[in-house]
Amino acid sequence: MIDIAEVSLWYDRAHKALDRVSETIRRGQTVVICGPSGSGKSSLLRCINGLEAFQEGTIRVDGVSVRDPRTDIHRLRAEIGMVFQHFELYPHMTVMQNITLAPMRVRKKARAEAEQKAMALLERVGIPEKAARYPEELSGGQKQRVAIARALAMEPKIMLFDEPTSALDPEMIKEVLDVMTGLAQEGMTMVVVTHEMGFARTVADRIVFMSEGRVVETGTGRDFFERPQHERTRQFLDRILL
């Protein structure tokens, strides 16, 4: 479903953010990317929907090349949902408006239809009563659940999560992870950058460990935690798992 082949990305001549990264993510898989900060995890995620313009290599999503100038990048992005560390809800719109904006403007759906779908999604993430509220009136966990609903409103084939729980207070992390776990169980294809090792161990089909722009090792949940192959991975796990 997602084919990443030999992708390299430079921010400037001195700083190489990704160094010949290759990965394949199949339909219905959940892949967790972890690694120290500055290792290129978020950059890789942004390359998948073309938010970051990488210089070398190719990424294909459902066979469509992301960097090909003939590709309609907006149409491709509409098929890929994305969730951010700091939620990035639009502060001047209500929860309902946040969710219906892209379905109405990009998919050209009628308002009634978009709102009906939005309500169903809010039910699903457990906060239908917040539809008329503004983002700043919600708690962090609620904001992130709205952000997930907003991404799902486009009926995406793939969901990208960029550290979705890093900005949350501990007691709110679970409500967000529960929604994500549910999605994974329903067969959504997901790429998740996170430090939540509990989530990685129980939900992820595969874990990718990155460091300094490279993929150091990948493995299934159990292999990765119990038999890490590389010194860097061991050091990282020691630091993050007490």
Partner: peptide, 26 residues
Amino acid sequence: PPDQYRAAYASGMTGFQVYRYVIAPF
């Protein structure tokens, strides 16, 4: 924040739509 732009682009909006509906009003 740059992620606010990214969130808008990630939903498939064009550059004009991003500025018109998300960036400019705020």
